[in-house]
């Protein structure tokens, strides 16, 4: 794996947290009262929200709600993730 720049490193952290949430989410669907599962989801959700906010501030929106509405619609000025180096 090539050296990752700061933006890519932050995206990896988001993907890691996002994956933890997807796994916990599917598990909780079939184990909705598991205290360990609930705690795990809550911990990772907090970390995920902070990283998403940091990424949007530095590199552009991941969700449309994070798009800049003051000067320009940053949703279309940041690249899409299928381009090499953008995921």
């Amino acid at each position: 794996m090539a050296m990752l720049n700061e933006k890519q490193q932050l995206m990896r952290k988001i993907q890691n947290e996002s994956f933890a949430l997807v796994e916990a989410h599917l598990y909780l669907d079939s184990h909705p009262t598991c205290p360990m599962g609930l705690k795990y989801f809550a911990q990772h959700k907090k970390e995920y929200d902070e990283l998403m906010e940091e990424y949007a501030q530095k590199y552009g929106p991941i969700t449309v709600g994070q798009s800049d509405t003051e000067k320009k619609w940053s949703w279309v000025t940041a690249p899409f993730p299928w381009e090499r180096g953008e995921s």
């Binding site: 090539a2 993907q15 449309v64 899409f80 993730p81 299928w82 180096g85 995921s87």
Partner: peptide, 15 residues
């Protein structure tokens, strides 16, 4: 649904 502008897991193919 809401689209998130990221892949679930990275894809970066050189060749």
């Amino acid at each position: 649904w809401q689209y998130e502008k990221k892949l679930q897991y990275p894809v970066n193919i050189k060749n």
